[in-house]
Design a binder for these strands. Structure first.
Lengths: 140, 140
DNA sequence: GGGGTGTTGATACTTGGTCTCATTGTGTGC
DNA sequence: GCACACAATGAGACCAAGTATCAACACCCC
């Protein structure tokens, strides 16, 4: 579960400490997105005794490694989603919070068209898709 | 300048108060994106005596009317950009903050492809493009 | 020009995140 | 195995962005 996260941290050359293992386990246990507040609540519920700062620090680290990504939900809150380090986009279920990743699927055409029209050089982009996952749609 | 904003507020059926005129003028005077903090600073620099809350309230109102939109900058901060009420996306110059709007330019193909692959029904999306505007690129 | 009601400013509060610093725990070299 | 340098930690102060509350005010319709 959390092994991938830990392995990646190890490869990044940082120490594998107790708190990091515990937080990684909490992240692995969640599926879909979560907020920093969720993790903090989880940690305090289980009396892990890890501080808020440590959680934010680990999230930063994971984000640097591309193992976790920040997404901005439509309501303006932000969440983190565990994911593969390759470039991709997220599909977020607005009902249950499930996440799907989609690899590049034609966005380059969009960016180059936008670039052509505006004269801008495009360096990066952010695409987030919001909708309903198959389960939530059929449950309706 | 700020006339469009005021006209739109009028049409929205809200009162055209002194503070609203002043804030609208501040927004009109900026080109490109700005943060709420920018407006608050502007207002206090000119001793307009408008409160923070009023500024946030007006931004909300304008956002509801689609005259202003919140974008999340790559560094995680958020900014507001004045814009047309139709659906579109923003191109943000990372060097000077200039904004260009691009109408739909093929994103539907991307969303339907993503939908097909994932089984999600897609309800909305957010696309932000970051790069350099023609001026900043030539200035290097 | 009076009055109902939408709007305002001050201020307290909340949320999400960062900084600091003394203390602790890891991994490395030996 | 052990010691030690230094990365990582927790507690709590701090900060920034935004929201809630509420009495006082001002717009605009009549």
């Amino acid at each position: 579960m959390s092994d991938e996260l830990l392995r990646a941290l190890d490869q990044a050359g940082v120490r594998l400490t107790g708190p990091r293992r515990e937080i990684a386990a909490l992240i692995a246990k969640r599926n879909g997105h979560f907020t920093a507040a969720d993790l903090i609540a989880d940690a305090s519920k289980r009396r892990l005794g890890v501080g808020r700062a440590t959680i934010f620090r680990l999230l930063d680290l994971l984000a640097e490694q591309g193992l976790v990504e920040r997404v901005d939900l439509p309501d303006g809150r932000h969440a983190y989603v565990p994911c593969e380090p390759s470039h991709h986009h997220h599909l977020v279920c607005v009902a249950c919070g499930a996440i799907a990743e989609v690899e590049d699927c034609g966005i380059d055409a969009v960016t180059s068209e936008a670039s052509r029209r505006s004269g801008f050089t495009i360096e990066s982009h952010r695409l987030e898709l919001f909708g309903r996952c198959p389960n939530c749609r059929s449950a309706n």
